Amino acid sequence: MSKALIPTYDICSLAMGKPASEDLLVARFSDYLEAHKDIRFPHRHSFYHLAFFTAGSGAHTIDFERFQVAPGQLYFMVPGQVHSWFFTGKIEGYVMNVSASFFNAFLQDDNYVERFPFFSGVSAEGVVQLPRENIPAISELFESMLTEIQNPQGYGLDMLRLLTLELFIKVSRATNPASGKQELPHNYLLLRNFRKLVEQHYMQLRLPKDYAALLYVTPNYLNSFCRHMLGKSAGEIIRDRVLLEAKRLLTNADMSIASIAWQLNFADNSYFTKFFKKYTGQTPEEFRKHLA
């Protein structure tokens, strides 16, 4: 395993022989793979990343969870997630890299994109399978984006924003019809706010009651709500976020187990090791060896 940190790419660093854009890259999958043969290894992005498979096989891993490739599959990633891929045969489809700020000049709500369930930052929720009848429409949207990029006209960026939002909405409608309905705003707002708070505070706040207080609900309500929405208690969601960060840090061979325990706010190395093994079935050292 490399002794360096997992590399983090920005959009410009993945430009494909064209004028680099800081906000958007759209490409056919085969062209993208040919231009960036080295990024099959674990890496992160500083942007939202979307891949759409129309042909091919193999697997891709997002935050240490492995998924088999299938035609009609899309995977959505938020900034900071770790992923890699292991493809067999010729892969076809499309890739999109889009910055978090791409829509800011276009939408009043800076957090609009986070409303889509596939941008939750949870690996399994970011991998969706399109019904066969929806595949042509999504492919057509990607082709329209490529045409717009290759033959720029007036209001080009705004057209690309419209096409991108149309893609997100059509995928969401096809795979999760209940999302976005006006009669369900409270549940999705509470879930989104809880997940954002966990993302901000998981290193310091480990108890559901801490988050319940920030959300102005009772701990019992928060736990029952999480079980209803996600099939997990609030405590499990907090714990899973701590474990994910531990796994990400363990990919850096230069960090000692003690340093990782300290960074994650554990009392000592022994407590961290017991916690990690209890919920993963491996010690941190064993997990790190399997990454090599």
Rank of each mutant, 00 (worst) to 15 (best):
T283W: 02
M1F: 04
D38P: 01
T175G: 03
L130E: 02
H290Y: 03
L157A: 11
T251S: 09
L157F: 07
T54V: 08
I149H: 01
R192W: 03
R241K: 15
Y32R: 06
H49R: 05
E133P: 00
Y221F: 15
L189K: 14
R248T: 06
H49W: 03
M255K: 14
Y271D: 14
D240N: 15
E125R: 11
R173S: 09
Y188S: 13
K289P: 00
D38C: 00
F29C: 07
S21K: 07
R239C: 06
E65G: 01
L207Q: 15
R173E: 13
V171P: 02
K232R: 15
L5K: 10
P208H: 10
E143F: 00
E148T: 15
L141P: 01
L160I: 06
G126F: 03
A258Y: 03
A55S: 10
K289A: 13
G80S: 10
E125I: 00
Y48C: 07
L207P: 02
N187C: 09
S123R: 11
E285G: 09
F53G: 00
S123E: 14
S256I: 04
H201M: 07
D31H: 14
Y155R: 08
K277F: 10
S30K: 10
N111Q: 13
F119N: 01
P7R: 08
F272D: 06
S46N: 13
R241H: 11
I149Q: 06
